[in-house]
């Protein structure tokens, strides 16, 4: 499973990456986490509010940082 966190590195983006990591690890998933930090790459996903969460190429969430439990629901 490929998890991408879109964001240039503000506090919310770091929190999103941490929580996504916790969520995936808690579920025992085999995953790779990529931080997408360049504007053109973020914008190319159609995202307008960072941080964005993309799972296997599908945008799951933008603008808010869900709880670990909520991210696990998105990863399922």
């Amino acid at each position: 499973m490929k998890i991408e966190v879109l964001g240039t590195g503000c506090a919310k983006c770091k929190l999103m990456a941490e929580r996504a990591e916790d969520a995936a690890r808690g579920m025992g998933l085999a995953y790779t986490l990529v931080k997408v930090t360049e504007y053109p790459d973020i914008v190319a996903r159609g995202v307008m509010s960072t941080p964005g969460l993309v799972v296997d190429g599908v945008l799951k969430c933008q603008g808010t940082v869900p709880t670990v439990a909520a991210i696990q629901a998105l990863l399922r």
Partner: peptide
């Protein structure tokens, strides 16, 4: 014209 955001962070919050 908009690509689906399959889901939702907000709606995914468990009760």
């Amino acid at each position: 014209e908009t690509k689906g955001c399959a889901c939702d962070c907000a709606a995914a919050v468990p009760p």
